[in-house]
Design a protein around this nucleic acid. Structure first.
Length: 430
DNA sequence: TCTGGGGTCCTAGGACCC
DNA sequence: TCTGGGGTCCTAGGACCC
């Protein structure tokens, strides 16, 4: 481990996250939904990916396919939304702005979770500080949160989970406090731990380790044998030895993927090429936003794995003579690859492009054989990005992506972009 | 006939996360 | 009829090199 990355000792971390985050974003602009069950669906309105406690109480599982719970939702007046990532992303950045007022260092871990270094803050009571943070977020954004506190990130994460599961904690749990830790931690089941999924929990159970208290007492070397270095680190972190540092700098992306299910089966190559062109367009935007170029990737397509359709999964690699972030070049390569991977006579349900080898723009080597005028392409792409930023993502699109896009992913229950589009600002009557 | 040892790189697959 | 998308990290094993 690098000295620069080595965790500093004696830190206190807080993990704050939004409760049923996507649902809470929807409720923030529809207060009538408070107290009512709400769920948010995945892309293509496929399955439930966020549920309020009222929805969980109805038995709606994480990942439940919507068509299987549609009747249940109707009977119980569940408010059902398509994903509105523009809204959730904007709410997320508002929350992180608040976190920066409460802590000098913030790691944005996911769209709804951030780690804060709160060492020495709060004037002696971390619980009070956590409550103050929650109240501020609630007042300024409308999003309810929970806060977990601990001397390692694993303990902070577990404290956060504990705060969610025990109403008497009122949303804040501090595992830097030994009494609190010993009250809640030992009996917690290992499956609740960050980094312990179903497979690892089964391996632990096989050697008689089912609770966090038991895992904590396991020899770290044994943990490594069983669960690789991840298991070893978890044991150390449970014992208060920090192995994971706060990661406040953006890390270099290793890959960029744009993959989507279709709103209805695609059975013609023309439509498949349109879809892949649209995904390549989006991938090029992502590359430019991160200052990266692609060297190679893969285009894939497959049929529905669930419904008994004839199965086909094909892919075709794409390679570039020199690293590129150019929309036209990516679209051309992707549509060519799609034609190669295409098999006639199948009902395709999904396709995508994955760029697997990336280099920073500044390190991109140019080829002597290249025939493209880079400077001209760069100006064109900059203009494209500027126009789409100002007037909305799909204002200017490559013709290859098609204009009708009858295959496009379903979002039939999407709420407005309340905070990011002038036309969709919420209206208030007084 | 006897046939070493140590290193790197790459890839596929598993597991996990939100 | 209808079942998401986008990531990361780790390990084992093979290819290859000297």
């Amino acid at each position: 481990m690098d000295a620069a990355q080595a965790p500093r000792i004696g830190r206190v971390f807080a993990l704050i996250d939004g409760n049923s985050f996507y649902c809470s974003c929807e409720r923030a602009f529809a207060p009538a939904l408070n107290g009512r069950p709400v769920i948010v669906l995945s892309n293509n309105d496929g399955c439930a990916v966020a549920r309020t406690p009222e929805a969980k109480a109805l038995g709606i599982a994480m990942g439940a396919p919507f068509f299987k719970i549609r009747d249940l939702c109707r009977k119980n007046q569940v408010a059902v939304f398509s994903s509105n990532y523009t809204l959730y992303g904007d709410m997320s950045s508002r929350m992180n702005e608040i976190y920066h007022q409460f802590a000098p260092e913030v790691e944005v871990y996911s769209i709804d979770e951030s780690f804060l270094d709160i060492t020495g803050l709060g004037g002696g009571s971390y619980v009070a500080y956590g409550q103050q943070l929650r109240q501020t977020v609630r007042t300024w954004t409308g999003i309810p949160t929970c806060v977990g506190i601990g001397p390692t990130k694993t303990l902070a994460k577990l404290a956060n989970r504990t705060a969610k599961n025990h109403a008497e904690l009122n949303g804040v749990c501090d595992f830097s406090d030994l009494a609190t830790r010993e009250k809640y931690l030992p009996a917690t089941s290992v499956g609740e731990l960050w980094g312990i999924g179903g497979a690892s929990a089964a391996k632990l159970k096989a050697i008689g380790v089912e609770t966090v208290g038991q895992l904590r007492a396991l020899d770290p070397k044994r943990g490594r044998q069983l669960l690789t270095v991840v298991g070893e680190r978890t044991i150390h972190e449970l014992n208060g030895i920090a192995c994971l540092a706060l990661e406040t700098l953006p890390v270099g992306r290793k890959g960029i993927a744009v993959t989507r299910s279709f709103g209805r089966p695609v059975t013609s190559l023309v439509e498949m090429q349109q879809a892949v062109a649209a995904y390549a367009t989006r991938a090029a935007e992502k590359l430019r936003r991160h200052g990266l170029c692609a060297v190679q990737g893969v285009v894939f397509m497959h049929t529905n794995a669930f419904n008994g359709d004839k199965w086909s999964h094909t892919s075709k690699a794409v390679e570039f003579l020199e690293p590129t972030d150019d929309t036209q070049e990516l679209v051309a390569a992707a549509t060519r690859a799609a034609a190669t991977a295409w098999r006639e006579g199948y009902r395709y349900a999904k396709a995508g492009i994955m760029l697997t080898e990336l280099v920073p723009l500044t390190m991109a080597q140019t080829s002597l054989l290249a025939t493209i005028d880079r400077a001209q392409r760069d100006r064109l792409n900059q203009a494209l990005d500027a126009i789409n930023l100002r007037f909305g993502r799909h204002t200017l699109v490559p013709a290859a992506a098609g204009l009708k896009q009858a295959w496009s992913t379903k979002f039939e229950r999407k709420s407005p972009c309340f905070t990011t589009r002038w036309k969709e600002l919420p209206k208030v009557a007084a």
